[in-house]
């Protein structure tokens, strides 16, 4: 179930505080709407993989880097 608008707003504010970011109050509603859309996108990425499914860009040694 998607989080409530209030829960989204609280989570967003916590992220801003912990990142040390201060948004002008007049922009908050616009950014919160983008955040809600972004969180819905992020939800699509989770819960679809087995523990063996590795991410892209897994580090690989090569003969060149070993030299």
């Amino acid at each position: 179930m998607p989080p409530s608008p209030e829960a989204l707003a609280r989570a967003f504010d916590q992220f801003m505080t912990s990142a040390g970011l201060t948004l002008p109050p007049a922009r908050r509603a616009t950014v919160l709407a983008s955040y809600a859309d972004f969180k819905a996108q992020i939800a699509l990425l989770h819960g679809r993989h087995e523990h063996t499914d590795e991410p892209a860009h897994v580090f690989a040694q090569t003969a060149e880097t070993a030299r």
Binding site: A11, F12, F15, M16, A19, L21, L23, R27, T30, V31, S34, Y35, F38, K39, I42, L45, H46, R48, H49, D53, E54, P55, A56, H57
Partner: peptide, 28 residues
């Protein structure tokens, strides 16, 4: 600019788990 900042701040809300989930989807 306002549009730039409004977009960039969303990056502060991405967790390590989110980023790695995106990279797993990237491989898929």
């Amino acid at each position: 600019g306002e549009i730039t900042a409004n977009r960039f701040v969303l990056g502060a809300t991405v967790t390590a788990a989110d980023y790695l989930a995106a990279l797993r989807v990237r491989r898929e």
